[in-house]
Amino acid sequence: MKTINIASTEKSPKVLFDPKKYIFEMEGNSRPENVRDFFYPIIDTLRDFFEEISPEKKFTDNETAFNFNFKLEYFNSASAKFISDILVIIKNGNDKGLNMKVNWYFDDGDDDMKEVGEDFSEMITFPFSFIMMQR
């Protein structure tokens, strides 16, 4: 089972994917120098994992959802494209019966970040939980 554990930098986010704990997390800033090199391996890993799971087996009991936590401070337009690709993988997984949950975090006062999350949610027609953070 492939996991992801990328530390954050000033230009790229922390990315964590731990299927055993049913968690995917992306946190920080995203304007990587080579956006394709950064996101392709992440997207491939997620796609492979969620495509291989059969809906009958699922990945967990019905009580536990696979949590996707987005705690982004800033991302550029190219990163937005890849974030939307990740969200489509989540939506597809949910459509085949997997229990997926998207938690979209935003700072208190950052209405734009909340709005971006709402745009994404509408775009993939999948409800998000919106969580305001106090810093």
Binding site: V35, S77, A78, K81
Partner: peptide
Amino acid sequence: YKKSLTNAEISDKGGAGLG
């Protein structure tokens, strides 16, 4: 924006044409 995000392709220079 939402429509362009769905259809965007990333160029060799890392642009999504969304700027």
